[in-house]
Simulated assay, not measured.
Amino acid sequence: MNYGSLAAFLEQGKAALAKGPVALILIEDLVEVESTLRHHLKAGFRTVVAFAPATLELPTDLAGKVYRVPYDMRAPDALINAINPVIAACPKTTWLYYCYNAEYLFYPFCETRSVGELLAFHTEERRDAMLTYAIDLYAPDLGRTPNAVNLSEAMLDRSGYYALARTDPANSNTPRERQLDFYGGLRWRFEEHVPWTRRKIDRVALFRAEKGLQLRADHTFNIEEYNTYACPWHHNLTAVIASFRVAKALKFNPGSTFSIDSFKWHNSVPFAWQSQQLMDLGLMEPGQWF
């Protein structure tokens, strides 16, 4: 299912956006594109849209399940120029999700429950967005895996994560209610190679379309309630995006690749590709969902 442009998809593919959940996969390069698409199809997304370069080739079985939109992720403001038109084209309350290639959504009990079940419960809790954390994955041996992407031997940091109060830009002494800035992983350990505006690991990657809603370049929304980690009454579900994106970028970037011989440190542990490990490490919250 190929479209000539984003505008053509929004005009001709309205049925694909009529009912979610819809996964929007932003493809920056050709690394692990197929595994990313298959992971999210298996999670139960009704529609998977690939914003893909023209050079991408997909197996026939996968190409028939994915809506493909030609898109250049290297263009200025590529993220918001892809996501915001889709939000505007969706019926109100359609659940949307976005991630990049070589990123994989995990949520509590995802091995036995679909993303549709997850979002149905979250909707019943009167929540229109879910906080996710981009948790860095990386290969243990950069000599054998120069691009830092190795699914079979992936590692992650078991500690080193922290949060700071998010203040109102108009008043730095006033913290925003139920909002925090989260840090950790490779962005924290190799912060000298990461611009300060890109060091946060929080991302509101699951959300419902709403009239006037817009994603901002820092992965927050213009409706502040969407940026909260929980409702006022109790803890809510959170999720993880297990991501090779930062490791890949640090090894692709000429300014950092020669400074990094290994991403491993004393707090590195193998990634089990299971939601229980992420909950045990305190990296996501099951809330009231048992």
Rank of each mutant, 00 (worst) to 15 (best):
L119W: 10
C110Y: 07
E124A: 14
T93I: 00
Y107E: 09
Y133N: 06
E111M: 09
T132P: 02
G116H: 03
P108Q: 06
I87V: 12
Y133R: 13
E103I: 05
T132N: 14
A88D: 13
H122Q: 15
E125T: 13
T94W: 01
A89F: 01
E111I: 10
C110T: 05
E103F: 12
L137I: 07
P108T: 07
T123Q: 15
C99I: 04
Y100A: 05
A89L: 03
A89N: 05
C99H: 10
V86K: 00
Y97A: 04
E103H: 00
C90H: 08
T112M: 06
K92R: 09
Y97G: 01
C110F: 12
P108V: 08
A139T: 11
P108M: 07
Y104F: 15
G116C: 07
R127A: 12
A89P: 00
I135K: 04
E117G: 10
M130Y: 05
D141L: 05
H122G: 03
T112H: 09
A102C: 12
L142D: 01
A129S: 15
N101R: 06
L96A: 12
A88Y: 00
L131N: 02
C99L: 13
D128G: 09
P108R: 03
M130D: 08
R126L: 13
A89Q: 01
Y98R: 00
Y98I: 09
C90V: 07
P108Y: 03
A134G: 13
C99V: 01
L131R: 12
D141V: 13
M130I: 15
L137Y: 04
L119Y: 05
K92F: 02
Y104T: 05
C90D: 06
A89D: 03
F109S: 07
W95H: 03
